[in-house]
C-alpha cells in the first residue's frame, strides 16, 4: 500500500457561544493492519497509524498513541469548552512517517 493517506473527516460546529462545550468528531479511513492477520496463506503486511495530535490555537489539546487494538478507520470524539474564536489542527501519522492533516475554525460571538 503506498501513496498519500486518505483525507480525514472532521465534524465540528462553525460557531459557538462563549463558555459552550462543543463536540468534535474525527474519522480517518485507514485499514490499521497489525501485520498479524492472514489473508489465505499470506500475512497481510503491517500498516498502522500510530499517532493523532489535535491542536487548539497551536497548543496540544489531545494526543493519542494508537496501537493494534484501535479499530480500522480510527474514530474519536472529545469535548472542548470554547472561550474565544479558535483554530484547530488535526494530524495523523503512520509508522512510515506519512501524515494526513485537517484544519477547522470555530468562531465565538
Amino acid at each position: 500500500m503506498s501513496g498519500a493517506l486518505n483525507a480525514p473527516r472532521i465534524r465540528i460546529p462553525r460557531s459557538a457561544r462563549a463558555g459552550e462545550v462543543i463536540e468534535i468528531r474525527t474519522l480517518i479511513e485507514h485499514p490499521m493492519e497489525t501485520g498479524l492477520r492472514q489473508d489465505g496463506s499470506r500475512a497481510v503486511p503491517r500498516d498502522m497509524l500510530t499517532r493523532m495530535v489535535v491542536r487548539m490555537n497551536g497548543e496540544v489539546l489531545l494526543a493519542a498513541d494508537l496501537r493494534n487494538g484501535t479499530a480500522a478507520n480510527p474514530f474519536h470524539v472529545f469535548f472542548v469548552r470554547m472561550e474565544r474564536s479558535s483554530a484547530f489542527e488535526f494530524t495523523w501519522t503512520d509508522e512510515r512517517g506519512r501524515s494526513a492533516r485537517a484544519e477547522a475554525r470555530v468562531s465565538v460571538a
Binding site: V21, T34, L36, M56, E59, V60, L61, L62, A63, A64, D65, L66, R67, N68, G69, T70, A71, N73, P74, F75, H76, V77, F78, F79, V80, R81
Partner: peptide
C-alpha cells in the same frame, strides 16, 4: 485477550471540557 494488549493511550490537556474520549476498538 487480544494478540497484543495495547489499544491506545490518550494524552489530555486541561483545555478539554471534560476527561472524556470515545473511540472504537478491536476485540
Amino acid at each position: 485477550r487480544n494478540p497484543t494488549p495495547g489499544v491506545a493511550s490518550f494524552h489530555l490537556s486541561p483545555l478539554l471540557a471534560r476527561a472524556e474520549v470515545q473511540t472504537r476498538i478491536r476485540l
